[in-house]
Amino acid sequence: MNAKKIFDQIEKEQQEEKERQTRIEGESFSILFTLAVGLLIVIWNIAHGIPTGDIFAMFWTTAFGCAAYGYLKDRRRKSQLCIAAVSLALIIYNLIRYFAGI
């Protein structure tokens, strides 16, 4: 009977680890896809002389959202707070450049 409980506990932990890994892979794919599409649009805009600050702001917004969520979910992850702060600064910088027409 005791072995059954241990086996069930191990199975439950493996299931939780699979779900966590799937979530992390989904977040990573989302950021990479955003980066790839943003890069394509940036190249297009540069080729046509269009400002690119808006696209960069959208990318940094995605990075900020993921980092802020990661920090709020587990406040021990101080690196996520640093990433969120840098991303927020880059969002503001790129929006200012975009609205100023630079």
Rank of each mutant, 00 (worst) to 15 (best):
G26H: 11
P51N: 08
F99L: 10
T34P: 00
L32D: 04
Y71D: 02
M1Q: 13
E11D: 08
I10T: 08
A100M: 08
A68H: 09
I46V: 14
M58I: 07
P51L: 06
L72E: 10
C82K: 10
A63E: 00
N2R: 05
K5P: 03
T52A: 09
F29V: 07
A89C: 11
T61C: 12
C66G: 12
Y71E: 03
I10R: 07
S79T: 10
E19M: 13
A84S: 11
L81N: 11
S87K: 03
E27F: 14
K18L: 15
T22C: 06
A47R: 10
E27N: 11
W60T: 06
R76M: 10
G49C: 07
F99M: 07
C82S: 11
G70C: 04
Y98G: 09
G38R: 04
W44F: 15
K4H: 10
V37T: 11
A3W: 01
E11G: 01
F99I: 10
K4Q: 14
C66R: 13
I83G: 01
T62N: 07
R77V: 12
A89S: 12
A100Y: 00
M58A: 12
A84D: 05
N45M: 01
R23A: 15
E17G: 00
L81Y: 13
L40Q: 01
T52C: 09
K5T: 14
S28W: 05
Q15S: 12
Q15A: 14
S87L: 06
I92L: 15
W60N: 09
G53W: 03
I50P: 00
Q80H: 13
S79Q: 11
A47V: 01
T34R: 00
I10F: 09
I43H: 13
E27I: 07
Q9H: 03
D74T: 09
I50V: 10
A100Q: 05
I46T: 12
M1C: 12
C66F: 15
F33V: 02
F59Q: 11
V42H: 01
D8K: 07
R23C: 08
T62I: 04
L72R: 07
I102H: 08
E13M: 13
A63G: 03
A68Q: 11
L72S: 08
E11T: 06
G101E: 08
I41Q: 05
E13A: 12
T62S: 09
A84G: 05
L40I: 08
I10K: 09
A57V: 02
L81P: 06
Q15K: 13
Y69T: 09
A47T: 04
R20C: 02
